[in-house]
């Protein structure tokens, strides 16, 4: 494996870790449930995607990479469904969102 691939993989892993941290900060910092959905969205798409991409570069062309691609594929398809189910359940339970009515 070339040194360039190695460095690129570490950039992906550390970048992904940063986005996971951002998602975690967002979940603690944002004011209500609906806005926290967006923070989880950050760590689910960008954070998980970059960490898995970094691991794929480490794995090279092998069975390991195929499994990582499958993990990513399942995450991409189940993630929005779970988020939507949560948002719809909260909406149906009449959980009040914080809304900013000012005109932009």
């Amino acid at each position: 494996m070339g040194a360039a691939v190695h460095i690129l993989s570490w950039i992906c892993l550390l970048g992904g870790a940063c986005f996971l941290l951002v998602g975690a900060i967002g979940v603690l910092r944002l004011p209500d449930f609906y806005t926290r959905l967006h923070a989880v969205s950050v760590s689910d798409t960008m954070g998980a995607g970059l960490v898995l991409a970094g691991l794929m570069l480490q794995g090279g062309l092998s069975m390991v990479t195929v499994k990582l691609v499958l993990i990513f594929y399942f995450m991409i398809f189940t993630g929005p469904t779970a988020t939507h189910a949560l948002a719809e359940a909260a909406l149906q339970a009449k959980l009040k969102p914080v809304v900013d009515d000012r005109e932009p």
């Binding site: 996971l20 998602g23 975690a24 979940v27 449930f33 926290r36 959905l37 989880v40 760590s43 689910d44 954070g47 998980a48 960490v51 898995l52 691991l55 990582l68 993990i71 995450m75 993630g79 779970a82 988020t83 949560l86």
Partner: peptide
Amino acid sequence: LAVNMVGTLTVLIVA
């Protein structure tokens, strides 16, 4: 929502 996020993170840490 938090448990859902912890689930994703658990997958990543296992990998």
